[in-house]
């Protein structure tokens, strides 16, 4: 028989991605064994994050400050804006260190199956950021998934920005670094062949 508070903790932890009731029980037992070193700091960090972290009203990133650290960073190039689906994609690009401009998080993609249209995404704010008066964005980079929904969203944005004089580009699709052709799926090979460039 598990005590009420522990049962509640196990229930909540088992709702997290990747955790089920069994792994939640193991995590709770581990936390109880390391009460001072892990459990209390974790509880404190979670409470602090829940209180301070918000969505950046400019780009949609998660941060303790609004605007977020990326939007406030003067070293970043304000002429470049990279559009991503969600914060996880923003973090992935930041890990790569390949991009030094600003971001815009859409919060998903257009989806015929889920009935998600432009109004359900952070689309109006994007258009305002890019085409509003006094804005100096020169290039919008669409870093969206190579899926039907991702590319439908990319086409939608590029059509909305057509005629605004802003360059719209998107990430290449093709052979990954370290990838061998023999192991690639047909779709990736087809996309790579179509997007070939002079050597």
């Amino acid at each position: 028989m598990i005590a009420g508070d522990l049962e509640r903790l196990i229930q909540l932890l088992s709702r997290l991605p990747g955790l089920g009731p069994r792994s939640a029980r193991r995590a709770v037992l581990h936390l109880m064994k390391k009460r001072e070193a892990l459990m209390l700091p974790l509880a404190e960090a979670m409470a602090r994050a829940a209180e301070s972290v918000t969505l950046c009203s400019t780009c949609g990133n998660l941060d303790s400050h609004d605007p977020c650290g990326i939007c406030r960073d003067p070293r970043r190039d304000p002429k470049l804006l990279c559009v991503v689906e969600d914060v996880a994609d923003l973090w992935a690009l930041e890990r790569s260190g390949a991009f030094k401009g600003g971001y815009h998080v859409l919060g998903g993609t257009l989806s015929a199956i889920d009935g998600r249209g432009p109004d359900q995404l952070n689309m109006g704010r994007l258009l305002e950021r890019v085409t509003g008066e006094g804005k100096d964005v020169e290039e919008v980079i669409l870093a969206l998934s190579a899926t039907v929904d991702g590319q439908t969203t990319a086409h939608y944005i590029s059509e909305r920005l057509a005629g605004s004089g802003i360059k719209v580009s998107r990430l290449a699709h093709g052979v990954p670094v370290g990838g061998e052709l023999d192991y690639l799926d047909d779709g990736t090979l087809t996309a790579a062949m179509k997007a070939r460039r002079p050597a």
């Binding site: 190579a146 039907v148 590319q151 699709h173 799926d185 047909d186 779709g187 990736t188 087809t190 996309a191 179509k194 997007a195």
Partner: peptide, 9 residues
């Protein structure tokens, strides 16, 4: 066959 990849662009 990935027809999706053929028309993605």
């Amino acid at each position: 066959c990935s027809y999706m990849a053929r028309v993605l662009d």
